[in-house]
Design a protein around this nucleic acid. Sequence first.
DNA 1: AAGAATATTTAGGTTAGTCTAAAAAATGTT
DNA 2: AACATTTTTTAGACTAACCTAAATATTCTT
Lengths: 225, 225
Amino acid sequence: MQSSIVLYSQAEENYLKCIYALEMEHGEEVSTNLIASKIKTKASSVTDMLKKLSAKNLVVYKKYQGVRLTERGRETALRVVRKHRLWECFLVQKLDFKWDEVHEIAEQLEHIESDLLIDKLDAFLRFPKTDPHGDPIPDKHGRMVISKTVRVLDMRIGSSGILTGVKDSSGPFLKYLNKKNLALGDKIKVIDIEPYDQSVHIETRTHRLVISNNVAENLYLRNVK
Amino acid sequence: MQSSIVLYSQAEENYLKCIYALEMEHGEEVSTNLIASKIKTKASSVTDMLKKLSAKNLVVYKKYQGVRLTERGRETALRVVRKHRLWECFLVQKLDFKWDEVHEIAEQLEHIESDLLIDKLDAFLRFPKTDPHGDPIPDKHGRMVISKTVRVLDMRIGSSGILTGVKDSSGPFLKYLNKKNLALGDKIKVIDIEPYDQSVHIETRTHRLVISNNVAENLYLRNVK
DNA sequence: AAGAATATTTAGGTTAGTCTAAAAAATGTT
DNA sequence: AACATTTTTTAGACTAACCTAAATATTCTT
Ligand SMILES: [Mn+2]
Ligand SMILES: [Mn+2]
Ligand SMILES: [Mn+2]
Ligand SMILES: [Mn+2]
């Protein structure tokens, strides 16, 4: 027997996706204010929505205690994440968008409802494992491969790795990386970390540059040697 | 100077598209009830929306007199139609959907807002002139080529033509055509029209069959000889 | 352990888009 | 022209998703 598919509103989907991301990031109960700031809404609106999601068994919510996704909530969130990332792949690979242009459009496309559509899109793209920002794409069962990566800031001086992900995939940050000629797949060597402000001297195959501690926190490297 | 782009809600876009289609079909003021039945809502809801669209200068509306699109309203409707039909092309040509499976998904995709997206999609599809149901696709300026066609019902007995469009592109009707092995591009000859019930005997390259008057009204042929 | 500061919830309101029921206008019929 | 029928509009209500302001709970500081 297959569970009949239930539809959720765009607002509900956005809250679930947001709670999922915050759970991943913090690993514990997610607070009302944290959700409010991420979703750019007011705490009172969040409280309203948490009650609704709780009534639908998508989250476990007790007053003043924060929320957690239920199994059902996580599945739903992952379906939205899968759609978001697949559409981002489509936009970059098939329509020649730049990696800094796709997020807003994917925010809309992720709410299109059709399982057949998303599975056909997945096949059309040849079942990509990561999106244009290096984030893993859940398969139709919600499973994904999370590759082990290290923040540039946590690298040992002299070590190097391949740039495989960014924590912040907002337009401005990605445009900054474009300007500095940094892209996913680049080999990066950490030359030095300034003790005073944690800024990092790095070297790529083509150039050297200094990045701020803030930037160094947002770049993930793989295959450290 | 370029007119700044104004966003409309999905509901507003759906009403505009509906009014556009009814204007095309009837060539005069569109009535409240007609809109209500097409959009599957109540006449009172339509009246509410007409007031709103009128306030935004998208339609000309006078109580009890029906509505007409303004220039601005028609442009907006055509933008939605363009998106709907381009997405239908994408679904059929790139994702291997059948022509009877795409309408519902396109109803969702037509509301995705991004001019760049739709122009890139248009280019990716090599600027198609018609959608999978034979309907013309407006270009980015709202212009489209409307090819002259004749309903099967209006053909002279013995004449023939190429099936280039269907009036009804609902799933059930298209599935009926699939079952009867009729597809766009097929050459069809009208063998006889039964005077009693207007049913039509037709012949294709591969078979002969009888279609009801209802079906004969919904099939358009081009290139009659 | 009390008071201050912060976080969260509640109460009450707004808007978009829908609905039903009733009123009013337009149209059709004798 | 009067009455009946149909169409359209108005009035009033509902829900989802948001808001502000006020109340309450929790957490931090001394
Ligand atoms: Mn994104
Ligand atoms: Mn991404
Ligand atoms: Mn369609
Ligand atoms: Mn179509």
